Amino acid sequence: MRWTLPNLLTVSRMIAAPGVAVIFLILPRPYADWVALILFVSAAITDWIDGYLARLWKQHSRFGAMLDPIADKAMVVIALATLMGLFGFNTWLIIPVSAILFREVFVSGLREYLGHAAASLKVTRLAKWKTTAQMIAIAVLFSFGIFEHNFGMNIIGMDAEIVAGIFAGEIEDEFGLVWLSNGAALAYWGGTGLLWFAAALTLLTGADYLMKAMPHLRDDPND
């Protein structure tokens, strides 16, 4: 194995995956939310950079080809598990998260069963869009905690009538409560909507892989 820059970036993404979850055990919120968001977005960007550099410098390697999809799955799965811990048993999230996790387990098991024949299950453009949609949705959902915390901190000790007056436009919004509230709503519902979209793409790619694998799964009539 050659320690090229693309391979180093892939390894760094693999290491960052558990860091997204562990940071919530080390730092209080919203600092943990900020670090998790920055860490996740940085790792997601390296997913594009390492592939681009590997093509540009012709530094493709078997190690990189093996580890890159594993790093992507680790980032997504661990981040989704972290979000479920932060949001609790939320129906709007548990359904798309379950769909995404089911597909990842199913396709991984399918590839393992097919062995060398799994080479026929090449990554499609749709699968790349799926990964991109997942990472954008997760990043948006991580930002929700930042808006929520700052809104909560700014209304501590503030009379409910004052808060109502601010939202009604009767009192000047010195602390940006309306902006923070709208940001939190946009982050939650926008991230949730993107996650449902990502889950739909995820199931489509899973069905596509299954159809491509069917010729290898049919029983030999001569057996």
Results as ranks from 00 to 15, higher is better:
G165N: 03
V123W: 04
L53R: 07
I100T: 07
E161D: 14
I155R: 09
S143H: 03
A65T: 09
Y113E: 12
H149Q: 11
I95C: 07
Y52L: 12
T132E: 03
N150Y: 14
D50Q: 07
E161L: 13
G152T: 09
A54Y: 02
T131Y: 00
L67F: 11
F106D: 09
E112F: 11
N154Y: 12
Y113A: 15
Y113K: 15
P69L: 06
A133P: 00
A168G: 10
A79V: 09
R62P: 00
L53H: 00
A117V: 06
R125N: 13
G165P: 03
S42Y: 06
A74F: 10
I155E: 01
Y52G: 01
D47R: 08
V97W: 02
G85C: 06
E148W: 05
A99F: 12
L141N: 04
V41H: 02
M135E: 13
G169T: 01
I78E: 04
H116K: 15
M75A: 10
L110A: 06
H116C: 11
G51H: 05
S120V: 15
R55I: 09
E104Q: 12
I49Q: 08
A81L: 15
K130R: 12
I49T: 13
V41R: 04
F89H: 15
I78S: 06
F142L: 15
D68T: 01
H60A: 13
G88M: 08
L67W: 06
G85W: 03
L67M: 14
S61Q: 05
R103D: 05
A160C: 08
R55W: 04
N150L: 14
Q59S: 11
T46A: 11
I138W: 01
N90V: 03
H60M: 09
E104H: 07
F142I: 06
Q134D: 04
H116E: 15
F144I: 04
V41W: 03
A99H: 00
A65H: 03
I136M: 12
A160I: 12
W57Y: 11
I136H: 01
H149K: 11
I94V: 15
W92L: 15
Q59A: 14
M135G: 05
Q59T: 13
I166E: 02
F167R: 11
I49C: 04
S143W: 00
F142V: 02
T91P: 10
I49N: 08
L126D: 08
I166G: 05
A127M: 03
F63E: 01
A137T: 08
L56G: 00
F102T: 12
I162H: 09
F147W: 11
I146F: 04
I166P: 00
G145S: 14
M84W: 09
L101N: 02
L67R: 00
H116R: 15
R55V: 04
W57P: 02
F40N: 07
E161H: 13
F167S: 05
A71H: 02
I94G: 10
A168F: 06
I70R: 02
I95V: 15
A133V: 07
L121C: 07
L53G: 05
A160L: 09
M84H: 04
N90K: 10
T91Q: 10
L141W: 01
A79S: 12
L80M: 13
N150V: 08
G88E: 07
P69Q: 07
I100N: 11
N154I: 01
K58H: 13
A74I: 01
M135A: 04
T46E: 03
A81G: 11
W48L: 13
T124I: 06
V107Q: 09
D159K: 13
A133N: 01
G165R: 05
W129T: 07
